[in-house]
Design a protein around this nucleic acid. Structure first.
Lengths: 213, 213
DNA sequence: AAGTTCAAACTAGCATACAAGTATCAGCAA
DNA sequence: TTGCTGATACTTGTATGCTAGTTTGAACTT
């Protein structure tokens, strides 16, 4: 049975995906009326979906006026990268403590290795898998609150965080780092592994910071 | 002008406060009908407030059945403490980078020093100031996303995190650590300061973990 | 022609009505 | 007495109507 309340969830995800895919561009308006027409439902579920999007930082609501897709600045990206760095460092530490199985992680890395970086489609796959890897790290931690916090962290950033290194060379370096992270995880070396994980992510943060000009 | 939409905000905060004050005990039901009667409004704003409470982890909504105040387990407290540790460590590092002024922090610590731990009221004040200190650390970082993330981190935990050390002895130790944190902050020693901040918070996390029996 | 004003149209906030799923409890059977 | 069943009352989910704030643009003034 698809529960009835799933309608809101569905609208939420659909709008969010369209924002992530840039079908709704930053600054564009999200009208309750037109959206309810699009989804063949009343304004109520649309309204609740928009409220959630606002909560999660995708949308800005101006009272009595309208809802607009939020524009993220480079500074926002930097801030998100900062928080992500720390959340994922925590995830790594917890995974060491819990002695998680690394085979699922290895599987993802293997799949990433098989991607041909001269094929745009596979570059996309590579990026998706890359995100999967990091998400899996958080999921495996067994800390639900950490996972929720991570998921809420405006995933707009995926594009910028992970669609960056497109070249075969970039792939090799990224993968080397990922393998090393897994090595530390296998050895349950929380201290050094966390340091490495931190550096892996913080570098990207610094890139945002520098590019502010 | 008090904007009209403030109604939802007001209901949200009121219910949240009542949950924090234990006026609504964990497991108890939050009926849209009775709440809308309490607040002399329709179900719509109440509904949106409850949806926000659900998002923020205070309430569990069972479809077509009802909303209930979430019961937090010791494990939840541990998980929250873990995430807080890392978020505040980040805050400390950013404050070092930004070379923030430490006087507001000192002021809070001074006020804490003046609390008489034999007077229950002042113990309460001490706890509030304690939370203020940590919140200020996050606010000063200038990372809005970090602040939002921190604020959402179910503040139920305050009671357990900060109402713990009630004795004069506990106060002294806590304050010593806080002063040391400020010293590191003043010296802009991100590396060692962050380590100390981490230890300061992680100890509490370990206390939760141990007490699981 | 440019700026201002005011009214009309549009937007979301809120109230209310109805639909549909869930829980409860009385009545019955074993 | 205990366990089951079914009807009823109650809950939230969704639709819709009305209100009030916001925006827009055309007419008017300067």
């Amino acid at each position: 049975m698809a529960t009835r309340t799933a309608i809101i969830e569905q609208i939420y995800e659909d709008i969010r995906d369209k924002i992530l895919k840039n079908e709704y561009t930053p600054g564009s308006k999200l009208s309750e009326n037109s959206l309810s027409a699009d989804y063949h439902c009343s304004r109520t579920p649309v309204r609740e979906a928009i409220k959630r999007l606002e909560q999660d930082g995708f949308v800005t609501v101006l009272p009595q006026s309208g809802s607009y897709v939020k524009e993220l600045t480079l500074k926002d990206y930097q801030h998100i990268a900062e928080v992500r760095t720390y959340l994922e460092s925590l995830a790594f530490r917890l995974n060491c403590e819990n002695e998680v199985d690394i085979t699922p992680f290895s599987a993802i890395l293997d799949a990433m290795d098989r991607c041909d970086m001269d094929n745009p489609n596979e570059v996309m796959t590579f990026s998706d898998l890359h995100f999967q890897f990091h998400l899996e790290m958080v999921k495996a931690s067994g800390n639900e609150i950490l996972l929720t916090t991570f998921n809420r962290l405006n995933l707009n950033t995926n594009s910028l965080l992970f669609y960056q290194r497109l070249s075969t060379q970039g792939k090799v370096q990224t993968q080397e780092e990922h393998r090393k992270i897994l090595e530390f995880l296998e050895k349950r070396d929380a201290t050094r592994g966390e340091k490495f994980m931190f550096a892996h992510l913080w570098r990207k943060r610094n890139a945002y910071k520098r590019s502010r000009v």
